[in-house]
Amino acid sequence: MYPHERSLVKRLADKPFALIGVNSDKDLEKLKPRLSEEQITWRSFWNGPEGTGGPISKRWGVTGWPTIYVMDHKGVIRAKGVRGEAMDKAVDLLLSEMEKEQSGAKKGE
């Protein structure tokens, strides 16, 4: 899972894109060395000491890990549960949609 996400983050480094994690590990001290080992550079919320029972995943109805939500630049949920290539496609589509919208807006000025 990490390699796929690493390559997505790297490929879209210059784009208006962010991968945000919600980490559900109970023990942060154990996790920290893993971040550098696995080159996990993206930012994550911490779900708290209850791990998978923590407040963020509970509120978002997460019952399986990993769970993915994809939001467009306006913060609207556009895809759920996409993994691997399907996730890449969803992101690319939203980026191009955003570019079109912004170039359209410039022309209109």
Binding site: I20, G21, S24, D25, P66, M71, H73, K74, G75
Partner: peptide, 14 residues
């Protein structure tokens, strides 16, 4: 992160 396309990824290192 409004203004960016965001992937929200619920993950754990296990």
């Amino acid at each position: 992160y409004r203004g960016k396309v965001v992937v929200l990824d619920f993950w754990g290192d296990w």
